[in-house]
């Protein structure tokens, strides 16, 4: 029983990590709290749902496609709108993305309606010694690892990655070194949106696709980022899994109505005792 609860927690945590990876990147690097992130995931979900329902494309195959479409959207939003205020205090950008989110959210409500839809494709689950592991959650776990690994690699080794890190460290110095800061911001935001789109594609199999969930996703992303720590790529993965396991056991021991509360209490404790999160670097909180 306890092993099943642990397994549930780890796969749930992987879902949370999927939600938070892109959000954490944008927050950590651009210092922009991207309130659009939840709606980006839902949009990725709708793209996947319609590709499956109309064209019969498997959701797994849609992961890169949904990701790239969202990358384009994210790039344009940053380039055309957010870059105008990106150097302003965080409250300004927060309000801006909040407003943009209201537009996207209500646009999706009008076009797709809030009626929950789902890719009715059962990937099934496998059973090791009585512990059930659903395949769709395993896929999202792999995706979370892959995205985190990819991001880590990009940030460490590629020119763009180094430029992103440089801009985060000192915007002015980076500009003097010849880095086109606006461009780097737009790429970073685009990568964040790519992660949201990719997560949305997997989630179309796991969760019902409905705009109602957008607020929940963004809420989870916040908690995961605070627990994991900002500015650290693996932080979102660790934060996600920690939150998943804690919620899973809290649901088991204290009853499901308290599971979410326990997650928030943990977040509060960390904010007081270790504001940079489990893996966060100092100065990013």
């Amino acid at each position: 029983m306890e092993l099943q609860i642990l397994a549930n927690g780890i796969v749930l945590g992987a879902l949370y990590a999927c939600i938070a990876v892109g959000f954490s990147l944008v927050w950590g690097v651009l210092n922009v709290i991207n309130m659009l992130h939840g709606s980006f995931i839902i949009l990725g979900g709708y793209i996947t749902f319609f590709a499956w329902a109309r064209l019969g494309i498997h959701p797994i195959a849609m992961i890169p496609v949904a990701g790239m479409i969202l990358y384009g959207l994210g790039y344009m939003v940053q380039r055309g709108v957010i870059n105008k205020v990106v150097t302003q205090p965080v409250l300004i950008t927060l309000t801006l993305t909040f407003g943009l989110d209201m537009i996207l959210y209500n646009f999706m409500n009008v076009v797709f309606t809030a009626t929950p839809q789902r890719v009715t494709l059962e990937l099934g689950s496998f059973d090791i010694g009585g512990i059930f592991m659903p395949w769709d959650r395993i896929v999202s776990m792999l995706l979370a690892f892959a995205l985190t690994g990819l991001l880590y690699w990009v940030m460490r080794t590629s020119r763009v990655g180094r430029a992103i890190v440089a801009v985060r460290m000192d915007r002015d110095a980076a500009a003097l070194m010849g880095i086109r800061v606006d461009q780097i911001y737009a790429i970073t935001f685009g990568i964040g949106a790519f992660m949201a789109g990719a997560a949305g594609a997997v989630f179309a199999v796991v969760f019902p696709v409905t705009t109602n969930l957008s607020g929940l996703y963004i809420g989870k992303a916040f908690v995961v980022c605070v627990i994991g720590g900002l500015g650290s790529v693996p932080g979102a993965l660790v934060g996600g899994i920690v939150l998943g396991v804690i919620e899973s056991f809290a649901g088991h021991w204290l009853g499901p109505q308290h599971a979410i509360t326990v997650g928030f209490v943990l977040m509060l404790i960390l904010l007081i005792t270790r504001p940079s999160g489990l893996l966060g670097k100092k100065g990013y909180e």
Binding site: I5, V11, L15, F207, K220, S248, P256, A259
Partner: peptide, 9 residues
């Protein structure tokens, strides 16, 4: 709770 994303436990 309202806002539960997982019912596994």
């Amino acid at each position: 709770a309202v806002g539960t994303l997982d019912h596994a436990s």
